[in-house]
């Protein structure tokens, strides 16, 4: 169970931060379907930094510092990349979906192109690094203690530094968007930009701000995904995480708390699919009554073996769950009113 929860936390963190990224863009009125592409691009920038810096003797002994630097670089490049979307959506009033799709196509193309030209490789690996003695050490894990109680183990054993930063950033930004003046202004631009403009708010600047924060968070999430879930391999894909984050954002009703709940739920179900043998099947089959059923009913055993001992069944659960919950909660769903509509000063 501890193992399952550890995995859940690792899987949920990129989802959490990227869903928040989506929220920031949409709350300011820009549909950011490019989250996937920005994640890929940010992850690539971070991985490249890790690739160049990790052989430096200083960073070999301070690998957590290197992890942090790569995280910052990934966020920075994510923000830069998102400017392409901002420019097309805000200045040229292009369709947000088309601009986002272009970025989603561009990111894998440019990362794979550069990986191949610069490194003559298909993917960038940064999971292990070589230390001064020529030994390979682990790059990622921040804290490795196994003599803790189970609850502390979830948070402090085999965790990554990105986990804590992500939680901190998530809480800070959630407060920022709800409790500060700029946050309120940003949200107003997603609801009624003309009204916001009439009281002197610079709609374009606010939308740029929202999308840029979104880009930085998505870059962060991309690097967090590649460095943790993908075992440190950047290969021009984030396994559709950006799109899933978009789903989680809508699932969470464009609100931080809902996003947190959604990503933890999804992460839990997703990790159940990976660890179901260890966390579900083994405890279940070790019980006496289960063994009795399995011995006495061959028909049930057959069904049990084809469905419940099947990876694909568990893989389906998170998606089906989200779909059902969306169907039931859609009545309460409230998207920002002006999202996806180019800001037109004259349309009051």
């Amino acid at each position: 169970m501890v193992f399952l929860l550890q995995k859940t936390l690792i899987f949920a963190i990129p989802l959490l931060i990227v869903a928040l990224a989506g929220m920031f863009a949409e709350r300011s009125g820009i549909i950011n379907i490019a989250l996937d592409g920005i994640m890929i691009f940010g992850a690539f920038a971070g991985a490249m930094a890790a690739f160049y810096l990790r052989s430096n003797p200083f960073f070999v002994s301070h690998n957590q510092l290197l992890f942090l630097i790569c995280l910052v670089i990934a966020s920075l490049f994510g923000a830069l990349f998102s400017l392409l979307l901002s420019f097309s959506a805000i200045n040229l009033k292009a369709d947000h979906t088309i601009g986002g799709t272009a970025l989603n196509l561009l990111a894998p193309a440019i990362t794979l192109f550069l990986t191949k030209v610069l490194f003559n490789k298909d993917k960038l690996e940064m999971a292990t690094m070589v230390n001064a003695e020529g030994q390979r050490t682990d790059f990622g894990y921040a804290i490795l203690k196994d003599d803790l109680n189970p609850v502390a183990q979830i948070f402090f054993d085999k965790t990554y530094i990105s986990t804590f930063i992500a939680i901190g950033v998530f809480i800070l930004l959630s407060f920022w968007i709800y409790k500060t003046k700029t946050g309120l202004r940003l949200r107003s631009c997603g609801e009624h930009p003309q009204a916001a403009a009439s009281v002197g708010i610079n709609v374009k600047a606010m939308r740029y701000l929202g999308t840029t924060i979104s880009g930085a968070l998505a870059g962060f999430g991309g690097y967090a995904f590649v460095a943790t879930v993908a075992n440190g391999t950047a290969e021009g894909t984030v396994a559709g995480m950006g799109f899933l984050a978009l789903a989680i954002m809508i699932f969470g009703n464009w609100k931080p708390l809902g996003i947190a709940l959604g990503s933890l739920l999804f992460g839990f179900l997703k990790c159940l699919a990976v660890t179901y043998e260890r966390s579900l099947i083994e405890p279940l089959e070790s019980t006496a009554w289960m063994q009795k059923i399995l011995e006495n009913s061959p028909a049930f055993t057959n069904f049990y073996n084809t469905v419940f001992k099947n990876m694909y069944f568990y893989n389906l659960i998170p998606f089906v769950t989200v779909l059902i919950v969306l169907a039931f909660t859609s009545k309460k769903s409230r998207a920002p009113k002006a999202e996806g509509i180019p800001y037109d000063k004259g349309a009051r």
């Binding site: 292009a94 272009a102 196509l105 193309a109």
Partner: peptide, 24 residues
Amino acid sequence: TSFNEYVPQLIVAVIIYFAGFSKF
């Protein structure tokens, strides 16, 4: 050449980016 099969993908992505401006 020293380049690879991802160049067309890159070109297509830029084309789509510009296609967003088609109304413009």
